[in-house]
Design a protein around this nucleic acid. Structure first.
Length: 165
DNA sequence: GCCAACGTTGGC
DNA sequence: GCCAACGTTGGC
Protein backbone atom coordinates (compact mmCIF):
# COMPACT_ATOMS: atom_id res chain seq x y z
CA UNK A 1 0.00 0.00 0.00
CA UNK A 2 1.29 3.45 -0.81
CA UNK A 3 1.64 6.29 1.60
CA UNK A 4 -1.13 8.14 -0.19
CA UNK A 5 -3.62 5.46 0.71
CA UNK A 6 -2.76 5.57 4.39
CA UNK A 7 -2.59 9.31 4.77
CA UNK A 8 -4.93 10.73 7.31
CA UNK A 9 -6.22 14.24 7.80
CA UNK A 10 -6.45 16.54 10.78
CA UNK A 11 -7.63 19.98 11.75
CA UNK A 12 -5.45 22.05 14.03
CA UNK A 13 -6.83 25.06 15.82
CA UNK A 14 -4.87 28.12 16.70
CA UNK A 15 -5.75 31.54 17.98
CA UNK A 16 -4.07 33.83 15.47
CA UNK A 17 -3.14 36.22 18.29
CA UNK A 18 -1.01 33.40 19.69
CA UNK A 19 0.19 31.74 16.48
CA UNK A 20 -1.27 32.45 13.06
CA UNK A 21 -1.09 30.92 9.61
CA UNK A 22 1.08 33.88 8.62
CA UNK A 23 3.40 33.03 11.51
CA UNK A 24 3.73 29.49 10.19
CA UNK A 25 4.44 30.67 6.66
CA UNK A 26 7.17 33.00 7.86
CA UNK A 27 8.74 30.42 10.17
CA UNK A 28 12.03 28.80 9.24
CA UNK A 29 11.30 26.16 6.60
CA UNK A 30 7.64 27.17 6.99
CA UNK A 31 7.72 24.65 9.81
CA UNK A 32 6.94 24.71 13.51
CA UNK A 33 6.65 22.29 16.39
CA UNK A 34 3.12 22.18 17.75
CA UNK A 35 4.17 22.58 21.36
CA UNK A 36 2.21 23.51 24.44
CA UNK A 37 -0.79 21.25 23.88
CA UNK A 38 -1.90 20.23 27.36
CA UNK A 39 -4.87 18.02 26.75
CA UNK A 40 -4.66 14.25 27.05
CA UNK A 41 -6.83 13.40 24.09
CA UNK A 42 -4.85 15.70 21.79
CA UNK A 43 -1.60 14.40 23.26
CA UNK A 44 -2.60 10.81 22.54
CA UNK A 45 -3.44 11.71 18.95
CA UNK A 46 -0.05 13.35 18.47
CA UNK A 47 1.84 10.53 20.16
CA UNK A 48 0.06 7.62 18.51
CA UNK A 49 -2.01 8.56 15.48
CA UNK A 50 -0.63 11.52 13.59
CA UNK A 51 2.00 10.48 11.06
CA UNK A 52 4.47 12.25 8.80
CA UNK A 53 2.77 13.00 5.50
CA UNK A 54 -0.68 13.48 7.02
CA UNK A 55 -2.67 16.50 5.90
CA UNK A 56 -3.55 19.40 8.19
CA UNK A 57 -6.26 22.01 7.91
CA UNK A 58 -5.05 25.11 9.73
CA UNK A 59 -7.95 26.77 11.54
CA UNK A 60 -8.10 30.19 13.18
CA UNK A 61 -10.23 30.19 16.32
CA UNK A 62 -11.50 32.77 18.78
CA UNK A 63 -11.82 35.61 16.28
CA UNK A 64 -14.92 37.33 14.83
CA UNK A 65 -14.98 35.04 11.80
CA UNK A 66 -13.27 31.73 12.62
CA UNK A 67 -12.07 29.95 9.48
CA UNK A 68 -9.89 27.35 7.84
CA UNK A 69 -7.10 29.40 6.31
CA UNK A 70 -4.42 27.06 5.03
CA UNK A 71 -3.15 23.59 4.22
CA UNK A 72 -0.19 22.14 6.08
CA UNK A 73 1.55 18.80 6.27
CA UNK A 74 2.84 16.80 9.20
CA UNK A 75 6.61 16.59 8.74
CA UNK A 76 7.59 14.98 12.03
CA UNK A 77 5.45 12.64 14.07
CA UNK A 78 5.04 12.43 17.82
CA UNK A 79 8.04 13.26 19.97
CA UNK A 80 8.38 14.63 23.50
CA UNK A 81 7.32 18.23 24.03
CA UNK A 82 10.40 19.43 25.87
CA UNK A 83 8.77 22.69 26.91
CA UNK A 84 7.11 20.56 29.60
CA UNK A 85 10.56 19.88 31.09
CA UNK A 86 11.66 23.50 31.02
CA UNK A 87 10.96 25.29 34.30
CA UNK A 88 11.24 28.61 32.48
CA UNK A 89 8.54 27.72 29.96
CA UNK A 90 4.94 28.76 30.37
CA UNK A 91 4.13 25.19 29.37
CA UNK A 92 6.22 23.68 32.16
CA UNK A 93 4.81 20.57 33.82
CA UNK A 94 6.74 19.43 36.90
CA UNK A 95 5.74 15.81 36.24
CA UNK A 96 7.56 15.67 32.92
CA UNK A 97 10.94 13.97 32.76
CA UNK A 98 13.14 12.56 30.05
CA UNK A 99 11.88 9.05 30.86
CA UNK A 100 8.29 10.21 31.15
CA UNK A 101 7.76 13.20 28.86
CA UNK A 102 4.00 13.33 29.68
CA UNK A 103 3.35 15.61 26.67
CA UNK A 104 4.05 15.13 22.98
CA UNK A 105 4.09 17.31 19.88
CA UNK A 106 4.42 17.03 16.10
CA UNK A 107 5.97 19.32 13.48
CA UNK A 108 3.87 20.80 10.71
CA UNK A 109 4.83 22.68 7.57
CA UNK A 110 2.77 25.22 5.60
CA UNK A 111 1.96 23.88 2.12
CA UNK A 112 -0.69 26.06 0.49
CA UNK A 113 -2.97 29.02 1.07
CA UNK A 114 -6.64 28.65 0.43
CA UNK A 115 -7.89 30.92 -2.36
CA UNK A 116 -9.93 32.47 0.40
CA UNK A 117 -10.62 31.36 3.99
CA UNK A 118 -13.47 28.92 4.55
CA UNK A 119 -15.46 30.46 7.36
CA UNK A 120 -17.78 28.76 9.82
CA UNK A 121 -20.65 30.31 7.90
CA UNK A 122 -19.37 28.59 4.75
CA UNK A 123 -19.01 25.31 6.61
CA UNK A 124 -22.41 25.55 8.23
CA UNK A 125 -24.09 25.73 4.84
CA UNK A 126 -22.06 22.90 3.34
CA UNK A 127 -23.49 19.34 3.42
CA UNK A 128 -20.12 17.73 4.13
CA UNK A 129 -18.25 20.42 6.06
CA UNK A 130 -21.19 21.08 8.38
CA UNK A 131 -20.50 17.62 9.81
CA UNK A 132 -16.93 18.40 10.83
CA UNK A 133 -15.99 17.92 14.47
CA UNK A 134 -15.01 21.57 14.70
CA UNK A 135 -18.62 22.53 14.00
CA UNK A 136 -19.91 20.58 16.98
CA UNK A 137 -20.90 22.72 19.90
CA UNK A 138 -18.52 22.59 22.81
CA UNK A 139 -15.75 20.80 20.95
CA UNK A 140 -12.53 22.19 22.37
CA UNK A 141 -10.05 19.64 21.07
CA UNK A 142 -7.18 21.54 19.48
CA UNK A 143 -6.29 18.63 17.19
CA UNK A 144 -9.20 16.87 15.51
CA UNK A 145 -9.60 14.13 12.93
CA UNK A 146 -10.87 15.10 9.48
CA UNK A 147 -12.38 12.59 7.06
CA UNK A 148 -11.20 12.22 3.50
CA UNK A 149 -14.49 13.56 2.06
CA UNK A 150 -14.16 16.59 4.34
CA UNK A 151 -10.57 17.12 3.21
CA UNK A 152 -11.57 16.88 -0.43
CA UNK A 153 -14.50 19.23 0.09
CA UNK A 154 -12.17 21.87 1.54
CA UNK A 155 -9.84 21.58 -1.45
CA UNK A 156 -12.75 21.77 -3.87
CA UNK A 157 -14.20 24.86 -2.16
CA UNK A 158 -10.79 26.48 -2.15
CA UNK A 159 -10.35 25.56 -5.81
CA UNK A 160 -6.84 24.25 -5.27
CA UNK A 161 -5.19 20.96 -6.07
CA UNK A 162 -4.27 18.76 -3.14
CA UNK A 163 -0.76 20.02 -2.31
CA UNK A 164 0.15 16.73 -0.68
CA UNK A 165 -0.46 14.37 -3.58
C1' DG B 1 -18.93 40.77 27.16
C1' DC B 2 -21.73 36.68 27.78
C1' DC B 3 -22.17 32.14 28.67
C1' DA B 4 -22.40 27.09 27.46
C1' DA B 5 -19.53 23.29 27.37
C1' DC B 6 -15.73 20.98 28.68
C1' DG B 7 -11.47 19.18 31.27
C1' DT B 8 -9.12 19.18 35.57
C1' DT B 9 -8.62 19.40 40.46
C1' DG B 10 -9.24 18.14 45.01
C1' DG B 11 -12.10 17.22 49.14
C1' DC B 12 -14.47 13.60 50.97
C1' DG C 1 -14.75 6.78 43.05
C1' DC C 2 -17.87 10.62 43.20
C1' DC C 3 -18.85 15.16 42.18
C1' DA C 4 -18.80 20.19 43.05
C1' DA C 5 -15.95 23.95 42.10
C1' DC C 6 -13.07 26.06 39.18
C1' DG C 7 -10.53 27.68 35.05
C1' DT C 8 -10.46 27.71 30.11
C1' DT C 9 -12.13 27.60 25.44
C1' DG C 10 -14.33 29.67 21.89
C1' DG C 11 -18.63 30.89 19.29
C1' DC C 12 -21.66 34.44 19.14
Amino acid sequence: MTKTNTRRYWLMKSEPAAFSWEDLKSAKNRTTCWDGVRNYQAKNLMRDEIKAGDGVLFYHSNIPSPAIVGIAEVVREGYPDDTAMDPASRYHDPRATRDNPVWYMVDIRAKADLSSPITRNDMRRHPVLSQMDVMKKGNRLSVQPVTKPQWQAVLALATIQDPLV
